[in-house]
Simulated assay, not measured.
Amino acid sequence: MAEPWLSADDIAAHLGVTKDTVYAWIAEKGMPAHKLGRLWKFQASDVDEWVRGGGAASSGADTRPD
């Protein structure tokens, strides 16, 4: 069976981030997404692979010490 396409809300919930963060990652970090009309769609396996590869990692310039 084919993997279902997820919405921005779905992928945000999957990753535990806000939808705004998802849109920022698409624009700034190359998060794997496909635009269908005005909607963004995602495959969880592609996004998971991108996260594991460090795609969502913060750059040194915008990290703050705890």
Rank of each mutant, 00 (worst) to 15 (best):
M1L: 07
M1T: 11
A2E: 15
W5L: 14
W5G: 02
L6N: 04
A8G: 08
D10I: 02
I11S: 00
A12T: 03
A12S: 09
A13H: 06
H14Y: 12
G16Y: 07
T18I: 01
K19H: 04
K19L: 10
D20L: 10
D20R: 11
D20Q: 12
T21L: 13
V22D: 03
V22H: 00
V22F: 02
W25R: 07
E28F: 10
K29E: 13
M31T: 01
M31I: 05
K35I: 04
L36N: 11
L36H: 11
L36F: 13
G37E: 02
R38L: 07
R38P: 01
R38C: 06
R38S: 12
W40E: 00
W40F: 14
K41G: 04
F42M: 03
A44R: 06
S45G: 05
D46C: 01
V47L: 04
V47I: 04
V47T: 03
W50K: 01
V51K: 05
R52H: 10
A56Q: 03
A56M: 08
A56R: 02
A56G: 07
A57V: 01
S58T: 08
S59T: 10
A61E: 13
A61N: 08
T63F: 13
R64F: 07
P65W: 12
D66Q: 12
